[in-house]
Design a protein around this nucleic acid. Structure first.
Lengths: 136, 136
DNA sequence: CCGGAGATTAGACAAAGTCCAGATTGCCCA
DNA sequence: TGGGCAATCTGGACTTTGTCTAATCTCCGG
């Protein structure tokens, strides 16, 4: 897959998102790296050369991407949310000391014995986070 | 189990925590309810009658309890951390719309196929969060 | 009674995220 | 070409959660 800015426009359109300049830049920042980025980091990447995109737009856009299913939200650190361009089913490995976050493919993991949901409830997602740290 | 203030002193001592007035009140707030509370909520409960305990003390004490293994931290909501007086192995069910958080006993759930950890790393914990919402 | 370690406090501060009212953009149609 | 309109973007004020610090308080042993 080729995450050039040009291809970002199509990706956005295919998710029913109007591809503006700012949105293309933000999508590019996330998808070209294939990494978990916080809003702050996205803003830093997008504004490296000269300031182009405001804080409000970064936050609005990430929330829009989330709504449209283009990215996933990963909540592992109480101080900030990470955005994940990988939306295929997967879990996370979080290195507590370094803050490093990596993926665990969901196909290799089995989870069984979860209880029935209360009536009228549907599962929105199952987050499995393995917290590890350096042995001392 | 009886979570009176008197018994809190022993509980604290058994976890190597000097039982001061404020610490007993905070422990009592958490354990008498057996619920997941945020720092804000703890502070509200502790200070219902008249202001007794400062914000700094609530945060310091919760962190102390965490270090000493008296409570667990639950990170499901990006905006605030919850503290969980239940330290036995268990997972969480999170109702996204209402913010309601409930326990899933770990004994009924099996997780298999997790990858080997990188060398020199140890697991600190495995958090499984089932996010559900009301069907619409 | 005194000293000191540990605990608590108020309030200033920091960082993430939200909100709003005004400016800009892009596009349709006369 | 030139409005006009809806969608988008913006700076900056604001809120909330949590941290830090320096001063004060408490309590216990000698």
């Amino acid at each position: 897959m080729d995450y050039t800015r040009d291809n970002m426009a199509g990706l956005l359109r295919s998710h029913d998102i109007n591809p503006t300049h700012q949105r293309i830049e933000i999508a590019h920042a996330l998808f070209s790296r294939q990494e978990h980025l916080s809003a702050d980091q996205v803003m830093a990447f997008v504004n490296t050369r000269h300031s182009e995109t405001s804080k409000a737009t970064v936050y609005n856009t990430l929330k829009l991407f989330l709504d449209k299913g283009l990215v996933r939200e990963v909540i592992v650190d109480p101080s900030k949310v990470f955005y994940d361009p990988n939306t295929s089913p997967h879990h996370h490995l979080y290195e507590v000391d370094s803050g490093k976050l990596s993926d665990i493919d969901a196909r290799s993991v089995q989870i069984s014995g979860l209880p029935q949901l209360p009536d009228g409830m549907v599962t929105e997602g199952i987050d499995l986070i393995v917290r590890v740290r350096r042995q001392h």
